[in-house]
Amino acid sequence: MKNKPAVLAVLAATATIFSSAPATQAAPAPQPAAQKVLAKGLVAPLHLSVGHDRSVLVSEEFAGRLVRIAKNGARSVVYENAAWDVAGSDRQRGTIFFAASQGAGPMDPRPLAGHIHSIDSNGKHRMFGDLAALEKKENADAGIQYGFRNLPAACAAQLPKDVPVSYKGDVDSHPYGIEVAGTKVYVADAGANSIVSVNVKSGTTKTVAVLPARPHRVTAAQAAALQMPACIVGHTYRFESVPTDVTVGPDGWLYVSSLPGGPEDPALGARGAVFRVNPDTGQVRLFADRVMSPTGIETDADGNVYVASLFGKGVLRIDDDDRKQRVLLPAALTADVDLRGDTLYATVNALPEPKKAPDGRVVSIPLTGHRDD
């Protein structure tokens, strides 16, 4: 959206609307003894999905590559094209589905494009669902007002040029997380700020829901930390809700992880959220608030929600009963999470440290008998 970097860039450098905010990385956390490392040395493993055979699909997004990690650790390349951002994946009856896009946000000069890809068990490759065309036609959040409201003109004049005082959603599309359910692929479009369904057979795209703006009242400490003028203290900035992943819960609703569209690190606190979306009506309800940088999501049969907190403490479990957040897997830079049976899988160390070789990892822990922190 307007003046918002593509989520890929946001995650890579914690780029923000308030661009002067310092980027921070989560400190390494202690790791539980039961943790098993399935793969090392991955390049920005921002997404993963686990199949019935316990093989793991991992998107090395910065490399434009989707790899399969077999149960025994053997790796094979499923798809590779450095010209595209390869994002979330899923599987259904032997067919692999994944999203690929380019041109999202002002920092990517390429033409806006994005589709769903499928590769069946015979290796037949198909591309369908023109997500960029849908966004160009509808501009899903064009009616949502972002930024400040009623900020005095004298204060607005003090804002940095790259900080919009007030604006509405602009045309952008960045298909990020996906979930295959029956004949539909649900897409968390981080550029359009919407959830989109793509018909597997026809390729028809449809906007299911648009996420609401996320208001935040600026404190004096936050304004100072962001090197912003003191006159914004006490005023509310309506940030964009940036969907990063989507899954179907046991109640049939879609569960969506959402970044707050501003500083993704702790500069303004834990402002991410988990939403529930009715796939039939588009109704959006808040499930959990004040979640730190949620970039991946999964649910279990009891309705508990598992969230990968990229700049937080690792994988969080949000209980369906009390909505409390508990650290289930302590880890640094946790980008995505999935469940298969009684095992939880996650990508950690998902962003490379400066001047060091990438060492993204896929890890797993058993859930049976595991006590939450």
Rank of each mutant, 00 (worst) to 15 (best):
P215C: 08
P215I: 05
H216S: 02
R217N: 05
V218E: 00
T219I: 00
A220R: 10
A221N: 14
Q222K: 05
A224I: 08
L226T: 04
L226S: 10
M228V: 11
I232Q: 12
V233W: 09
V233G: 15
V233F: 11
G234R: 14
H235V: 11
F239I: 01
S241Y: 00
V242N: 03
V242F: 11
T247W: 05
T247V: 03
T247N: 01
V248R: 15
G249A: 08
P250A: 14
D251V: 11
D251F: 09
G252M: 05
G252T: 07
W253D: 15
W253T: 10
Y255L: 13
S258F: 04
S258H: 01
L259N: 03
P260N: 11
G261C: 08
G261F: 01
P263Y: 07
E264Y: 11
P266C: 06
P266R: 09
R271E: 06
A273L: 04
A273S: 13
A273H: 07
V274M: 07
V274A: 09
F275R: 08
V277H: 07
P279I: 10
P279H: 05
T281H: 05
G282R: 06
V284W: 01
V284K: 07
L286W: 09
R290H: 15
V291F: 10
M292V: 14
M292S: 12
P294S: 08
T295V: 11
N304F: 07
V305L: 07
Y306R: 03
Y306P: 00
Y306L: 03
V307Y: 02
A308R: 01
S309V: 07
S309I: 09
S309T: 12
L310R: 01
F311Y: 12
F311R: 09
G312M: 02
G312S: 08
G312N: 04
G314L: 09
G314M: 09
G314Q: 06
G314V: 14
V315W: 00
L316P: 03
R317W: 02
I318Q: 07
D319F: 04
D319S: 14
R323A: 10
R323F: 01
K324M: 15
Q325G: 12
R326D: 11
R326M: 03
V327M: 11
L328H: 03
L328A: 14
A331C: 14
A332I: 11
L333N: 12
L333M: 15
A335D: 06
D336L: 14
D336I: 12
D338F: 09
D338G: 04
L339R: 05
G341A: 05
G341R: 04
